[in-house]
């Protein structure tokens, strides 16, 4: 049976056209869905980098573990983790405030999250500085190349996130909760949480690797 004939038509009563604009598309859903798709691509980038990490660590064999154990400071990384998670928490608070429609709450939450993000950056940065000054640089071998690439690539995301928060603070101040601002705030939450998740992976595979695993 032809696919096109399997629905009977009653010419008089069949609805052929939707009246009204945009036919009820849910814009928030569309925007967030697209952002999730973007996050998926970013996840694939990280997946590829972690795969490279696996390969290059395997190449380096035992030296990789001892190097991780001796040069990477797990305690500092633990402090970084606390800071980043607090930042995520602050942003979560902003989201709660958003539900209530409180502009002040969102502003405070976002600002705190941003500052903590910057603190995190400074901490990671100073740790890298310490390593570089000891001559432990990405150019030394393939394993260090990937380790530093992962850390720096994550840090770049944090920079983008912080910048984004700054922009949101300004747009909120100017426009209040317009639909654009709300979409962006919600997408920023996805982004920020995702970076925290990635950091956990980094923490486990890079900073803790040599210690316990």
């Amino acid at each position: 049976m032809s696919a096109s004939t399997n629905t009977r038509a009653q010419p008089g009563s069949t609805v052929l056209w939707e009246k009204g604009d945009a036919a009820g598309h849910d814009m928030l859903g569309t925007r967030t869905f697209g952002f999730w798709l973007y996050m998926l691509t970013d996840a694939m980038v990280y997946a590829a980098l972690f795969a490279a990490f696996g390969v290059l660590a395997h190449n380096a064999g035992l030296t990789s573990k001892s190097m991780l154990a001796s040069v990477f400071d797990a305690q500092a990384a633990y402090r970084d983790t606390i800071v980043l998670f607090t930042s995520v928490l602050a942003y979560g608070y902003a989201m709660v405030a958003l539900k209530k429609g409180s502009r002040g709450g969102v502003a405070i939450g976002t600002a705190v999250a941003m500052i903590l993000g910057l603190v995190f950056l400074a901490m990671v940065g100073s740790d890298l500085e310490r390593l570089f000054s000891q001559g432990i640089v990405p150019q030394l071998n393939g394993f260090l190349s990937i380790v530093f690439t992962l850390i720096i690539y994550h840090a770049l995301h944090i920079i983008v996130g912080a910048l984004w928060m700054l922009v949101m603070l300004m747009q909120m101040g100017r426009d209040g909760f317009t639909s654009n601002v709300v979409y962006r705030l919600i997408n920023l939450r996805i982004f920020w949480h995702f970076q925290a998740v990635i950091w956990v992976l980094l923490f486990v595979f890079v900073y803790l690797q040599g210690k316990i695993i």
């Binding site: 691509t41 980038v45 390969v55 190449n59 150019q139 030394l140 071998n141 393939g142 190349s145 690439t149």
Partner: peptide, 29 residues
């Protein structure tokens, strides 16, 4: 495509910064 971007970016790092992702020596692969 993200995987492609990574594979190319790592060549870039090797060529611009002298890392060792894909070199034959020094732990590259």
């Amino acid at each position: 495509f993200p995987v492609l971007m990574v594979s190319l970016a790592l060549i870039g790092l090797d060529r611009y910064f002298g890392t060792h992702f894909y070199t034959a020596g020094q732990g590259g692969n």
